[in-house]
Structure formats: C-alpha cells, structure tokens
Computed example of a mutant assay.
Amino acid sequence: MAKGLVKFDEEKCKGCELCVSVCPVKIIKLHEMNINSKGYRSACVEEKDKCIGCANCAVICPDGAISVYLEEGGDSRD
C-alpha cells in the first residue's frame, strides 16, 4: 500500500474539519492547542506513518491548505 505525506498550511486552514470527515484511515484532527493568526485551530496528522496518500483531504479542502505527496518508491496501487 502507498505511503503518503500530508502537509498543512496552518495559516490557510479555517478548521472546517472537512478533511477530518473524509480521511479513510482517520488520522487527521484539529490541533488542540495551536491557533493560527486568524484565530482558527488548524488540522494536523496524528499518525503520519499511517497516511496512505489518497489525497481525499486535499481534494475536499475549500481553502487549498493541504498538499499530499507520495513517498519515494511509493506505489499508488493497492
């Protein structure tokens, strides 16, 4: 299975939790303590090693705050 790397632009994130709702492996959550300059708790990944690189989170993000990369040597096929 592919391994992915999710990057969040914390300043763009408004904490809408759409990414949380579409993550098939349930590893995205909102920061409990960190608040960006606009006053929002941004999203983050709890267990980075469990990301499968599906990019559902990046596709649904209305603010373009998420980028997903496949790790070197990753295979996007199951």
Rank of each mutant, 00 (worst) to 15 (best):
M1A: 13
A2H: 04
A2W: 08
K3T: 06
K7T: 15
F8P: 06
F8G: 05
F8V: 15
E10V: 06
E10N: 07
E11T: 11
K12S: 04
K12W: 02
K14F: 12
K14C: 00
G15F: 04
G15Q: 08
C16L: 06
C16N: 01
C19F: 05
C19R: 05
C19I: 05
C19W: 00
V20H: 06
V20E: 00
S21I: 04
V22E: 04
V22W: 03
V22K: 09
C23H: 08
C23D: 12
C23W: 11
C23F: 05
P24A: 02
P24E: 08
P24N: 08
K26H: 14
K26D: 11
I27H: 07
I28A: 02
K29L: 05
K29N: 09
L30M: 12
L30A: 09
H31Q: 02
E32F: 07
N34M: 12
N34R: 14
N34S: 12
I35D: 00
I35C: 00
I35E: 00
N36V: 13
N36M: 10
S37N: 10
S37L: 07
K38I: 01
K38A: 11
Y40F: 15
Y40V: 05
Y40A: 06
R41Y: 15
R41F: 14
S42M: 09
S42L: 04
A43N: 05
A43Q: 10
A43D: 08
A43E: 05
C44E: 12
V45K: 02
V45H: 01
E46D: 15
K48P: 13
K50R: 15
K50E: 13
K50G: 03
K50C: 02
C51V: 14
C51R: 04
C51T: 14
I52R: 12
C54Q: 09
A55P: 01
A55E: 14
A55L: 14
A55K: 15
N56F: 14
A58Y: 10
V59W: 07
V59L: 14
I60D: 03
P62N: 01
D63M: 12
D63W: 11
G64H: 03
G64S: 08
A65P: 05
A65Y: 08
A65N: 04
I66L: 02
V68H: 03
V68Y: 03
V68I: 11
V68L: 08
V68R: 03
Y69C: 03
L70W: 08
E71C: 10
E71P: 02
E71W: 08
E71G: 00
E72A: 14
G73A: 14
G74L: 01
G74N: 12
D75P: 03
D75R: 09
D75K: 03
D75M: 02
R77S: 10
R77G: 04
D78N: 10
D78M: 09
